[in-house]
Nucleic acid binder design. Sequence first.
DNA 1: TTCCAGTATGTTATCGATATCACGCTTGTC
DNA 2: GACAAGCGTGATATCGATAACATACTGGAA
Lengths: 350, 350
Amino acid sequence: MKKADSSKGSNPRPGEAQKLTMTEVAKYVGVSAMTVSRAFRQDASVSEETRKRIMDAVDALGYVLDQSAGSLSSRRTGFIAALVPSINNSNFSDTARGITDALDNTGLQLLLGYTDYSTEREEQLIESMLRRRPEGIILTGGSHTQRARRMLENAAIPVVETWEIPERPINHVVGFSNSEAMSLLVRELAGKGYRRFGYIGGTTARDTRGSQRRSGFLKTVEELGLGVGRLISFGVPPISMEQGAQAIISMLERWPDTEVVLCVSDLSAFGAIMECRRRGMRVPEDIAIAGFGDYEISSICHPRITTINVDCYGIGKQAAARLLDALQTGDAVRNEITLTSYKVVLREST
Amino acid sequence: MKKADSSKGSNPRPGEAQKLTMTEVAKYVGVSAMTVSRAFRQDASVSEETRKRIMDAVDALGYVLDQSAGSLSSRRTGFIAALVPSINNSNFSDTARGITDALDNTGLQLLLGYTDYSTEREEQLIESMLRRRPEGIILTGGSHTQRARRMLENAAIPVVETWEIPERPINHVVGFSNSEAMSLLVRELAGKGYRRFGYIGGTTARDTRGSQRRSGFLKTVEELGLGVGRLISFGVPPISMEQGAQAIISMLERWPDTEVVLCVSDLSAFGAIMECRRRGMRVPEDIAIAGFGDYEISSICHPRITTINVDCYGIGKQAAARLLDALQTGDAVRNEITLTSYKVVLREST
DNA sequence: TTCCAGTATGTTATCGATATCACGCTTGTC
DNA sequence: GACAAGCGTGATATCGATAACATACTGGAA
């Protein structure tokens, strides 16, 4: 208690905010702490009059419920954990927003972390999240370290993997096939007469969704008998606008007759298009360029960018909904795959 | 215990993950729970050999520390709360990232919330955050409801307000003057010869930083003797690219001879520029347009956008640093203002 | 040899809320 | 009129860890 004593000594306004607990409130009102506790929850039976008196006292004293104490006793923390690759990427922050919106008014609070596209960091984060005893957890993607999988299994809480369809799902899945989505885009563009296809993406396999898009591209180009897809890998995912610009330069140097270039995301597509225009090329007349993700920028910029619209917000919202479902029904482990929609959006850039 | 019993009955793989506590680990190793607790912290004195045996057991059993129990006893939750207006806006998600990066390896965990630019929602969030007993809290801006201020004072934890300089700071501040920043931009552009200035921003006063930018604009245009600034307010903040596009249309209809338009953010500036180009206008020859915030897009798009660069990431990083300082020194309430840098970035759009 | 300091570990009380059971009172039913 | 049912409230044990103090043991100084 040394700490408390010293702070008491140096506190400029003593006697006020000193360790205000439910018991103080109870004393003040003249009821038991248990009744105060009940007054804070809607389900509990407290007479309307008592509840009002208690809430007035809470207001007067400035008491704020201590959930860290409550959750120990009730064994319900009210936390939901969510891990996304990046919070700076608007696709994922839309998902995060979908999650928080779905959690609004449920009394559940989001613990958000970003993995930076690294499974090691994900493992680390999973552990630090689980220490908070969340009641459920939402992950991005299906690649996890072995230890991460083990921890999740031991935790015995519902898990939702999002943004792709893992080969070996842990529990629930809310996502779509990145490979098929990209494939669909290739087919649409081939249908418009394009023949010489290029692809721009990041270098490593860190970004599993990126790899899936690329393999969907390659497979489909081949299936359509269009020869070999031309690949430029540039930069560590997620690749930036700037990297998209540099990648298109490489593409044009190596394969100057490329007709259409698909990019792993709208951001790189935007960078690529701006670079082309800066060099005096016309898009789509001289070269067509498409993106992935339907970021806001793609419907505004000039030319507007052809892309795949993905329901980022819906992924978050539905993932949270699956989690809430699982918590309510108390269903142990119900594996279920929720497919989210995507669609090709043809615009001026192709 | 009804719940535990029933879940025990229905659990498909019983006897494994059933309520694994520190005591189980201790029994398994043959030490006391206290020793296990100590093994988890670096400062505590446990022999290297015992620590290893304990950690092996932890691994074998799959035990994960329960911080919600620990924090009740230690009176340290290890939480830091942060509220930003929006997580979809890359300026603020950069700040959020700055915060998380600064918190990395400190053992502190971020509780992130977004206020949607509403002080009412902020108040609500502050309460739900305080229920988790964070050790410090980072806010955006200096406008808060009265009750919010009161709750923060009662909480007796360090508070950092960011992104602006409040008139009446609660505690620490890490930010800059939005008004002066905008003023600087006006002066620079006036120096380049521009005379008829327009401004595009959101409608209401919800966004205090936006209002400050606008008033900085108005004040400076007047000071320079350039007549009256032309204002278009369009949309509820934060205004989107699309709204920027619509606003520039209004601007040109109403004041066709406007020479330069400053926008509340790069996003609206971008929308405005794209709209102009779509209409065949040349930027900056026919009209010059500038933004605020130096988003990635502004250095990539064509033409590149003149803007004010703000150290978003640094704001987060420094805010967290101030908080860590305050926690370490245990300094009660040290009001201190940390000014962050900003600079005009002249590019092709003006 | 004795005693002290320091290290490694154990014991007990406690953090602040909630689960659970118990109790008194009112109301309505047969 | 007796008793069951329901409501509002209180008393006590407890959630799982850690603080604080206690204790056993070791090695070196006096």
